[in-house]
């Protein structure tokens, strides 16, 4: 396995370099997607399947889709900026890399971090998977704020969309539409499964949301149709963008009112509350990511 790990590490470095140095922007994006998949593999080797799943779904999949969507709206498809190798910058990056290697090499190897603490409190967490317990219970405030980050990232993007962009890439074809008809329900099923499974094993809202978002992206690509951003349906959609964060925060406030501290759950209901929060978080994540892909402008969603 050592040989595999070394090859994987070299492959990651090589792909990263090729992606950055490629003149052809499409090629750079494809290399970036491949890089994301290799990093997902590296997370697997580090025995972090949750991170691997998230990296593959969001880092490689949706980030790749977003980059391709951006690319389709650019005038140029090649990078024409002049190439200069600055000695000072090279030295700075080299120093950072060497320093990091030296610093990480000197860290204690025995440290278990907070793992013993996490395992000791699993009983009260309401879920059976340590990663879910940390993300949705012990450090719930981090995750709630991450949902806010995602929503505000979309608000930021909306503020920048000054013109009405056509929301669809020029991807059409019989194979695409017929496979989308088969894949879309399957993706919903997989998303639901990942969400449900997250309580006791690898999976959860972020992964499930990314899979659902992929389904929505596929839908809008194949049928040239967008989600309804106008009228009452639009109001509902805007509400769902924020539902994940606000359900989280409101449960947190109820916990405070019950004397459990802000972001605290009653232990008996913790499991059910976490599932409910994850359900709405999944919807928020899926709709936000899909909206970022379509890039509907502020004026249109405000109408």
């Amino acid at each position: 396995m050592l040989i595999f790990d070394v090859l994987l590490a070299l492959l990651i470095l090589g792909l990263a370099w090729m992606s950055v140095s490629s003149r052809d922007l499409f090629e750079a994006v494809v290399l970036f997607i491949a890089l994301g998949l290799m990093i997902a593999l590296a997370w697997m080797r580090l025995q972090a399947p949750d991170a691997a799943l998230a990296e593959a779904a969001i880092g490689a999949g949706l980030a790749g889709a977003l980059l391709l969507a951006t690319l389709s709206r650019l005038d140029r498809q090649t990078d024409v900026s002049p190439r200069r190798v600055s000695v000072a910058w090279s030295l700075i990056w080299l120093g950072l890399a060497v320093g990091l290697v030296l610093a990480f090499a000197q860290l204690p190897r025995t440290g278990e971090g907070l793992m013993p603490d996490v395992m000791a409190n699993m009983e009260q967490s309401g879920v059976g998977h340590p990663v879910t317990a940390v993300l949705l219970n012990f450090r719930a405030w981090d995750t709630a704020l991450e949902l806010a980050v995602l929503a505000w990232a979309w608000f930021a993007q909306q503020a920048l969309n000054r013109e009405q962009h056509p929301g669809f890439l020029a991807l059409q074809g019989h194979v695409l539409t017929s496979s989308a008809k088969i894949l879309a329900p399957l993706l919903v099923l997989v998303g639901g499964y990942l969400l449900w499974r997250g309580a006791d094993a690898t999976g959860g809202a972020f992964q499930a949301g990314a899979v659902l978002a992929a389904g929505l992206v596929l839908y809008s690509l194949s049928f040239k149709a967008d989600l309804p951003y106008d009228g009452w349906q639009g109001l509902g959609l805007r509400f769902l963008w924020l539902a994940g964060f606000w359900l989280f925060a409101l449960v947190g406030l109820v916990g405070f009112a019950l004397g459990l501290g802000f972001m605290g759950y009653p232990p008996a209901q913790a499991g059910a509350l976490i599932l409910l929060i994850e359900l709405f978080a999944t919807l928020s994540i899926a709709l936000l990511l899909a909206a970022m892909f379509s890039g509907v402008s502020e004026r249109r969603s405000a109408a």
Binding site: W141, G252, G261, F262
Partner: peptide, 15 residues
């Protein structure tokens, strides 16, 4: 100093 969610620091997040 408070621990969010009622989880004693350092497991929980401190305010």
């Amino acid at each position: 100093v408070w621990a969010l969610g009622g989880w004693a620091r350092p497991l929980g997040i401190g305010w």
